[in-house]
Design a binder for these strands. Structure first.
Lengths: 345, 345
DNA sequence: CTGAAAGCGCTAACAG
DNA sequence: CTGTTAGCGCTTTCAG
């Protein structure tokens, strides 16, 4: 490893001087000295040793990301955007931990962040209560939570970013009603997370105020896993197959998320129903596929890139000045249709 | 931060002793001393400072993962498995870099790994030639490549894990032929990667030896992006729509990958064809969805978990003993059908 | 304007 | 069997 002393030696200056140019304290430095140092740096291919720097400064350009599973498309896309933006804008890299919504894995991951000297973490849809996060850990960690409100109290505050699930449901239901649907349903799954609860609440609100002449209902698919993240498509398909048999089945369906929407669409199609002619499905959290699987359909797409940037900006901001008040940022998805972008030869 | 000296003080021993119990050098230590140290550790909630440890030992429990994009399902699943296994088996965490197959991003990521003191990297499907990897970087990095053979020469060797694409195509074509298909096609996209080339070669070989009475063809969809990773579903759908118009269209189709397969299936269905009754589609790299989108279909599923573990094991092994000869491990996907696993309430 | 030196937390070699 | 200590590469204060 080539260190700062090697650079100093080659440039014929002291290590202090080298350190100064590396860290931009170059205001009242002789230009000649500066140039010689720069030259030595490139000549030797000097790379700073971040661990040593951390040991001295207590800062390392790394952000932790705690997430149930990056194999789940909504999250993997969000995290990709986070990583890309953090690297480009701030030179930060990310350390990812898949925790499968397992409390022990979550706590272990947070501990290991501290051990690595990391002082910030983006928490995606975790089960952790504020108290747990706080217990012996988060006094060392600046956290921002995505998609889960962590109740505020005086002890500890964190930044908070999410979709406005209530408004989302109003948009979704409104769109179905506008298109003439009178029997509508929300399809969800059994595990309860705060975002799911909010979606249900929003759906009930919206369908109440829509004054449907038909019915509105909530259909809950029973997941085997606690939250069913990996089972979404299968669950959707099974719900579709059961619905097909019903005379009075809803004609407009809002799916809890994208994967569930795909399952529903495919399930209906396999039973011979046309989507969206016979039944409409709106996927929430459209991130990758649902608008594509049924391109004639409108779907609700969250501003993933913008949210990712907000998450990173909030974290960095508070890292630089921990006294800043934590914020809460809420985003609203937009009705969108994916364009076709390819030609075939 | 509570450090080793605090523990030493509380336990009434020297830092050397504390270090010894932390690192398991406890063979000829008085049990009483040992116990007191352990107690002090838990009492203070001591967590080792990994940066300081690295500074001394040159080792940090972190692996880099270079990947075009974790938003792509095949890779995000593989990486999830890698992360989970590395954490559980070895206590290693992973640092992920999305490089979008951009050479500069790739090189920057590798440099930053070195800067962080990381000495190992799993390279997923990169554009880097061996020479590039080697240039001023990989002499500091132990690398294992997934899904891309990096040509070997004497200068530098790396471990290598991939699917046997040739054999994969033999299985896929064989399966179609067994099921009576006489006109078959491989659908691929325009960007060339070594795995795509191998698949094409395998398809040609297999269909030649199958002595079809009908035709075999290769259909190339033109991606807008260099590799089209994000466009796969759209590309598949467009190919399907074009094929539907053809009288002599193939009845058995092998898709380059899972996302493309989904696009094809959905495209055919939207045009009123039944899958697999009217046309069969086999997805390679079945990781998340294709077997589900068309569950009656057989698809080729690679042993993702096993490959992930192999990648990690190879890296750790060579990290511990860099003189070990690099290996090459090739896996074969299996014909599989996804089970339904959920009930509906 | 530049050099010298202390010390971040840890490990390992050596002394007792 | 346990204690002492040098030093990993860096930043920063203080002298010069």
């Amino acid at each position: 490893m080539v260190g700062i002393v090697d650079v100093a030696e080659l440039a014929g200056v002291s290590v202090g001087t080298v350190s100064n140019v590396i860290n931009g304290r170059t205001d009242r430095m002789a230009p000649a000295t500066q140039r010689r140092v720069q030259q030595a740096i490139v000549e030797l291919g000097y790379q700073p040793n971040l661990a040593a720097r951390f040991l001295k400064t207590g800062v390392t350009p790394l952000i932790g990301i705690l997430v149930p599973s990056i194999a789940y498309p909504s999250w993997s896309w969000l995290i990709r955007e986070i990583e890309t933006y953090a690297a480009k804008k701030y030179g930060y890299r990310v350390l990812i931990g898949n925790t499968y919504r397992d409390r022990n894995k979550e706590l272990e991951f947070l501990k290991s962040l501290v051990s690595h000297g990391i002082r910030s973490v983006i928490i995606v849809s975790s089960t952790l209560s504020q108290r747990i996060i706080h217990d012996g850990i988060s006094d060392q960690l600046i956290a921002v939570s995505y998609d889960r409100r962590i109740s505020k109290d005086k002890i500890h505050k964190i930044d908070y970013v999410s979709l406005d699930h209530i408004e989302t449901m109003h948009i979704a239901v409104g769109h179905l009603v506008e298109n003439g649907h009178q029997r509508i349903a929300l399809v969800t799954v059994s595990g309860k997370s705060s975002s799911r609860m909010a979606k249900i609440k929003g759906f009930l609100e919206a369908s109440a105020s829509a004054a449907l002449s038909g019915s509105s209902e909530i259909i809950v698919a029973n997941a085997m896993d606690a939250y069913g993240d990996d089972e979404m498509p299968q669950l959707g398909r099974q719900v579709a197959e059961q619905l097909v048999a019903r005379e009075d089945r809803p004609t407009g369906i809002v799916a809890l998320n994208d994967m569930l929407a795909i399952g529903l669409i495919v399930g209906f199609q396999r039973c011979g129903l046309k989507v969206p002619d016979d039944v409409s499905v709106i996927g929430i959290d459209d991130l990758l596929l649902s608008a594509f699987v049924s391109p004639a359909l409108t779907s609700l797409r969250p501003p993933v890139t913008e949210m990712a940037q907000t998450l990173v900006d909030l974290i960095i901001r508070r890292l630089r000045d921990p006294k800043i008040e934590p914020q809460e940022r809420v985003f609203i998805p937009s009705l969108a249709r994916r364009e076709s972008v390819a030609k075939v030869s």
